[in-house]
Design a protein around this nucleic acid. Structure first.
Length: 415
RNA sequence: GGAGGGGUGGCCGAGUGGCUAAAGGCAGCAGACUGUAAAUCUGCCGGCGCAAGCCUACGUAGGUUCGAAUCCUACCCCCUCCA
């Protein structure tokens, strides 16, 4: 598979992005000779993208870097329907206002990775065409190219039917709409390629078939593997939920930490997928053994954070981690922080409450347990008294560091 | 339409009148060991409370009882077999 002539496919193949691809030779020839337009769809269910979307985002980024044009499609229209893929239950429907807010957040995520400047990447919303469709004309133009027989064979549909879980007609239409998106993007913007996770294969192929039947044009599909960690856990999920790309959802320091705590066995693979370091450099890092592999993890954390949050922020996160874990001066400015008014401090605030405010624990009871278990620290001193009250006197330096375990820290600032 | 089985904490899954905030497992959190890894071991793991205790919770709504996840009634949902 590595005999690709185009930079785009060669890089994706070398770095491990390619799971399945329709007609790779023809796509390669196209990418080698022309400016290719390709897209990925993101659904609109949250106001930030997360690490689970990162493979797709990186594919778009490489598309742009190798001289082609990436399109990010947000599913403002399809989100009103809900994708049955892989879900065993229907998604809840979102209101227009929620969708608008989510779109803004998604653009914020993407802007870090793609250049939306003139002639560059494009952000489109399929609501622009889906909202205006008329039922009868749509059925006549598009619906006639789909057979229900074929639709029933798709994995997402079959699963629902086999488990005898309800699949509404609304959801059943999801693949038709996604297929139509591809057709529409091809007609409007000359888009020839759709990429996505391997779970999107069926939907993508649907679009390719539709375009062939409706317009006689050849479109292409490319999917990336579904990522799991070496231990088999789903990539990008932690205890607190998804690993978000937007800083308002997840502090950059925590993002950095997420990558820093990668399992040994995943380091090489992740460096290839989630950074843009040269492969030779990655090969060198990957060969590090024992404790030395920590160097590779720091590089991974820095590079990944740089892409998502910028170089300055990545440096701060790295510095904060260094001071936290490797001693050295207090360079803790990148830690997540909360602000407590001075007059409240004057009255005295129970530590238990501080931990709850900082979001390090979910309830006061959990804070107590943390203290009893010896996992709570205040400026690196273990807290032994769960009734401890923090007052203004504890804030000579203007801030106080709360720690839950070795890895989770929040800075409390007096204001 | 008929017969039977079932809905329990984030998930799986025991529990058939008080000893049940509910066994066990998974996931999670913390501690120890390490390399901020993995594996292992220990503790914790509904909310409020210093505690005693109070509140919330075993599909939903009622009822029986001193006392119900457990018994009764109705309803909703799911599964298996038959027509």
């Amino acid at each position: 598979m590595s005999g690709f002539r185009s930079d785009f496919l060669r890089i994706l193949a070398e770095r491990g992005f390619i799971h399945q691809c329709t007609d790779p030779e023809a796509l390669d020839a196209l990418a080698a000779s022309d400016r290719l337009v390709g897209y990925v769809g993101f659904d609109c269910t949250a106001d930030s993208l997360h690490v689970g979307n990162l493979l797709s985002i990186m594919m778009l980024r490489w598309l742009q870097r190798t001289g082609h044009r990436p399109i990010a499609l947000v599913g403002g229209g399809t989100t009103k329907v809900g994708d049955p893929s892989g879900k065993d239950e229907s998604r809840r429907l979102l209101s227009e206002a929620e969708i608008a807010r989510n779109k803004k957040g998604i653009l914020h995520s993407l802007e870090k990775f793609l250049d939306f400047g003139g002639g560059g990447a494009l952000l489109v919303d399929n609501a622009d065409w889906l909202d205006r469709l008329l039922y009868i004309p749509f059925l006549r133009e598009v619906g006639r190219h789909f057979t229900v027989n074929r639709m029933l064979t798709f994995e997402s549909v079959r699963q629902r039917l086999e488990r005898e879980q309800p699949l509404t007609f609304l959801e059943f239409n999801y693949m038709v709409m996604q297929a139509y998106d591809f057709l529409e993007l091809n007609r409007r913007l000359g888009c020839r390629l759709q990429m996505g996770g391997s779970d999107q294969w069926g939907n993508i192929v649907c679009g390719i078939e539709l375009a062939r039947r409706a317009d006689g044009s050849q479109l292409f599909g490319l999917t990336c593997p579904l990522l799991t960690t070496a231990s088999g856990a789903k990539m990008g999920k932690t205890a607190q939920g998804a690993v978000w790309l937007n800083e308002n959802r997840l502090p950059p320091f925590d993002y950095w930490q997420f990558w820093r705590n990668t399992e040994d066995a995943d380091v090489g693979r992740f460096l290839r997928l989630f950074t843009e370091l040269p492969l030779a450099e990655i090969a060198r890092l990957e060969r590090l053994q024992g404790a030395e592999i920590n160097e590779a993890k720091k590089v991974l954390a820095f590079e990944a954070t740089r892409l998502a949050h910028g170089e300055e922020v990545a440096k701060k996160a790295a510095a904060a981690a260094r001071s936290l874990f490797e001693g050295g001066r207090a360079s803790i400015e990148a830690l997540p922080e909360i602000v407590v008014p001075r007059d409240r401090l004057a009255e005295g605030v129970p530590v238990i409450e501080l931990f709850t405010l900082a979001g390090l624990v979910k309830s006061r009871g959990e804070a107590r347990r943390l203290i009893r278990g010896g996992g709570a620290r205040l400026d690196d001193r273990r807290i032994t008294d769960e009734h401890l009250v923090v007052g203004e006197a504890d804030f000579d330096s203007g801030h106080l560091k709360l720690s839950a375990g070795r890895k989770r820290h929040v800075l409390v600032r007096a204001a």
